[in-house]
Design a protein around this nucleic acid. Structure first.
Length: 575
RNA sequence: CGGGAUGUAGCGCAGCUUGGUAGCGCACUUCGCUUGGGACGAAGGGGUCGCACGUUCGAAUCGUGUCAUCCCGACCA
């Protein structure tokens, strides 16, 4: 490709509306252009990168025995009614109507469609197992798209779905996918961690996420997930799923007797602890949530935080949020009480579900809200002053320095970008949509399913997050838009031009993906652009050509060597 | 949806307080000059100042409304 023909516009400055480096660099280097909020044009350079990622994914998926197909981007609502998700998926599902007023949606994921395909096409256990995948644009009307390609509303995704006769088969399919994923990300030049994650409201399911860890770079805030990992054994998990062993703390409040005392303005745990001169660990905190429209009060030890996903899963819910003040008022009115956030307690509440975290059950002589403004109950004990809720669960957010449940070592936290996930679905969709096959024993059974996603466009953006410097992108070779760029320093110098052309033609003849920067620009412009765009190798033909020497630059390390044109060509061919 | 901010040329911004011919840098076009890290000179082209309504002789500037975008929280590949 000749740079003079390449459709690319690099910008002198970073775009004002970009926050993270991958977004800034991809726009500035002319890879992407925003069309609407969370919707991007993939310009020629970007499209080359995406195709590279796609092809790596394809090869590894095919090697793993999966078969590629392509499902429609627009889906009928009927399938979603069958699975039950039409009513629960929420506003992320982009719904629309056709001219006959039929309800449709833009595909955010394809479990329903693939299940309908399996239902029609798979009759016998002899056809199993099978794994089908596609690479396609998805649309999710995200609440808050941001970070460029890292969280778009439209994005490119590889989604695969496995069908097995039994759980053992699913376990096998799952492990095959896990290995394929390790291969894929490694080939893309991305170090990933496979972490345990929340599997939503489906009981007994297993899922893992592949995280690109980004905490090492202080400037970087692109990682949207907290990943807890053990410093000793291999345990690692998303914060929404992580569990831990607590360090011992004081849990006896040492209050001689149970009494309600004045605690003016002590509506925070810290304020209360300070006022009473007790550690936060002897306070029982009461948090009011709304789960799928129902009121839930969560009790947790004062020093710890509620992990909302865990709490939601106690109720097999789809949606959770902190209750608003007016909703708390409603609870109080219904219970004949009068309190505001900060003074809430479990006693006397009506019309709410109460869940206690495991951290509260061992509290003694503790402090707890008593549903009276500016008052708390101190010296409380379960079963004496307050009933211990019947629902006790782990709804606690793990914190750094908690102990690993597997080996007891310390847990650490880091930020991660989720680039892929694998998920044991079981029979959720096959049962709901009556997708069955005839097993060996002649009985009709629902498929045992798994699903496996990779964010193609997010993976490319994550690669930029991990591989860049102050001058621009440093693409891993496997997903770079081009392998090498040949830069004649001065177009006026005939020797430089002819040597550069010669190198270019030699490489091109060997099917190397090569660019020659034949633009009549000053050297500075060409060199800056080459760094910004991030081509892995650069061969610069300058004045030293009179001694038969060119400069060979490796973008990953910014190492520069002076070698002969022949050797430069040989090095590229040897890659 | 809640909290904060911003909309002026392709990109980055000034002008707005105190209403009066719409500006700067980059990019773009032409010519000259220059060619190892985003040169220089000259001459150009390009904007319904997000949109609507209002106030006014007159609105980028003041008011109301609306839309869009960005940041912080609930979504997920």
């Amino acid at each position: 490709m000749r740079m003079s023909n390449l459709f690319v516009q690099t910008l002198r400055e970073f775009p004002a509306d970009a926050e993270v480096m991958s977004h800034k660099l991809l726009v500035r280097a002319g890879y992407i252009r925003k069309l609407a909020n969370g919707v991007y044009n993939y310009l020629p350079l970007m499209w080359r990168v995406l195709k590279k990622v796609e092809n790596i994914v394809r090869e590894e998926m095919d090697n793993a025995g999966a078969q590629e197909l392509l499902m429609p981007f627009v889906q009928p609502s009927e399938l979603w009614q069958e699975s039950g998700r039409w009513d629960v998926y929420g506003k992320e599902l982009m719904r629309l109507r056709d001219r006959h007023n039929r309800e449709m949606c833009l595909g955010p994921t394809h479990e329903e469609v693939i299940t309908s395909i399996a239902r029609e096409g798979i009759r016998s256990y002899k056809q199993l197992p099978v794994n089908l995948y596609q690479i396609q644009s998805k649309f999710r009307d995200e609440i808050r798209p941001r970070f460029g390609l890292l969280r778009g509303r439209e994005f490119i995704m590889k989604d695969a779905y496995s069908f097995d006769v039994d759980e053992a088969g699913l376990d096998k399919s799952y492990e095959v996918m896990a290995q394929a994923y390790r291969n894929i990300f490694e080939r893309c030049g991305l170090e990933t961690k496979m972490v345990q994650s929340d599997s939503g409201a489906i009981g007994g399911s297993v899922s893992h996420e592949f995280m690109v860890l980004v905490n090492e770079e202080a400037e970087n805030n692109a990682g949207e997930n907290d990943v807890f990992y053990c410093t000793k054994c291999g345990y690692s998990a998303n914060s929404n799923h992580a569990i831990s062993i607590l360090n011992p703390v004081e849990t006896d409040g040492k209050f001689a007797k149970a009494e309600i005392i004045d605690t003016p303005n002590a509506h925070t745990i810290e304020g209360l602890a300070e006022f009473l001169n007790v550690p936060t660990t002897v306070i029982c905190k009461s948090m009011v949530y709304v789960v799928d429209g129902k009121y839930v009060v969560a009790l947790i030890r004062g020093d710890r935080a509620v992990e909302e996903t865990k709490l939601m899963n106690v109720f097999v819910g789809n949606d959770i949020r902190i209750a608003r003040n007016d909703e708390i008022q409603e609870i109080m009115n219904a219970s004949g009480l009068n309190a505001v956030a900060g003074f809430i307690g479990p006693k006397g509440l009506k019309g709410v579900e109460i869940v206690a975290d495991e951290t509260v059950k061992d509290l003694k002589n503790f402090v707890v809200g008593c549903n009276q403004i500016d008052k708390h109950l101190v010296g409380a004990n379960w079963g004496v002053d307050v009933e211990l809720p019947t629902t006790i669960a782990d709804i606690r957010l793990v914190e750094e320095n908690d102990k690993c449940v597997d080996c007891g070592a310390e847990l650490k936290v880091t930020k991660g970008i989720e680039v892929g996930n694998i998920f044991k679905l079981g029979t959720k969709y096959s049962k709901a949509m009556n997708a069955t096959f005839t097993d060996k024993d002649g009985k009709e059974k629902p498929f045992i399913m798994g699903c496996y996603g990779i964010g193609i466009s997010r993976t490319a953006a994550a690669a930029v997050e991990r591989h860049h410097d102050e001058y621009g992108i440093k693409w891993p070779l496997a997903i770079a838009p081009y392998t090498v760029i040949v830069v004649p320093v001065s177009n006026q110098d005939e020797t430089q031009m002819s040597v550069a052309e010669d190198i270019y033609k030699q490489l091109k003849a060997k099917n190397i993906e090569v660019i020659i920067d034949d633009r009549d620009e000053r050297a500075g412009v060409k060199l800056k652009d080459a760094d910004l765009i991030g081509i892995p190798y650069r061969i610069t033909v300058g004045k030293t050509i009179k001694d038969n020497l060119v400069e060979f630059k490796t973008r990953a390390t910014n190492d520069m060597e002076t070698i002969s044109p022949e050797e430069a060509v040989a090095r590229i061919l040897a890659l």
